[in-house]
Design a protein around this nucleic acid. Sequence first.
DNA 1: CGTCCCACTGATATAACGTCTCATTGGTAA
DNA 2: TTACCAATGAGACGTTATATCAGTGGGACG
Lengths: 144, 144
Amino acid sequence: MTTFEEPRGLADELRDQGFKITSPRQQVIENVAGREDNFTAEALAAELLPIGRATVYRTIKLLLDQGLLCRVILGDGSICYRVSHKAHHHHLVCLACGATEDIHLEDVEDVLDRVREASDYELVSHRVEVYGICPACRARGARA
Amino acid sequence: MTTFEEPRGLADELRDQGFKITSPRQQVIENVAGREDNFTAEALAAELLPIGRATVYRTIKLLLDQGLLCRVILGDGSICYRVSHKAHHHHLVCLACGATEDIHLEDVEDVLDRVREASDYELVSHRVEVYGICPACRARGARA
DNA sequence: CGTCCCACTGATATAACGTCTCATTGGTAA
DNA sequence: TTACCAATGAGACGTTATATCAGTGGGACG
């Protein structure tokens, strides 16, 4: 459906905001843009190895800010990343293998409205992670 | 409303499950049970200093498993803990100061039912953190 | 097309957080 | 009271991430 692999567009977007499109950044963006799966910062750094670790971490943070990436919190609390596709969404995470799917929860806004009514907080954002066992792991006999 | 300060009951509960009620454990439980606020593992270890760091971390894990504590994920992804009061709940977290309130979202189950219908995952658990600015910080002029 | 500035890089140090190891200790069942 | 073994604590280690800082290359501007 949607076509990934448009680092050109993103690169332009970054340039417009005053960021330089350096070779390391380009490489990180290209590597990341086509991925469907989760990856840890450390794994990405290892994969792009001639590039410095610090640069990979900095670029991840940049892409997080720009909304190209989002953070996923696995069942054990560890953190990894995946492409965000920009639109707001949540995650369905397999406790056994860590695989993640995006889910769209339309009625979450209603829930938030209730919170808004019931509290004095000025709501800004939220995070929902749903944990379960994916079909593949279930077939393999994995249990909660 | 509810009375805290019942380390006796919890201690018995732990003993029933075969855990030893050692002096360090007792101290951790007593320190933690009366708290209303969040605390980091590191801060707790520092506070109970004669007790070894490893022991504090181990005890936190134990209390997490037993449901006396729950994990809170702050806006920046950092982790702290607070008493759980056992019943399932979610967190409303101030992005400015980290203060946290418990919230109960009754209709989350409906949302999860939809996920159950729409996916092949066997749902196990979920985590919802709502972020905002608390009244005190808002008054102080903090902004998202 | 050349030059210059400064954002960016990368090697390395530092920091935050948590787990592991292992010799020792103390709770508790008998 | 004794003895077993879970639990402790000091410290090493691992992981993940940020800070530092001299050097460099992207790209704006002339």
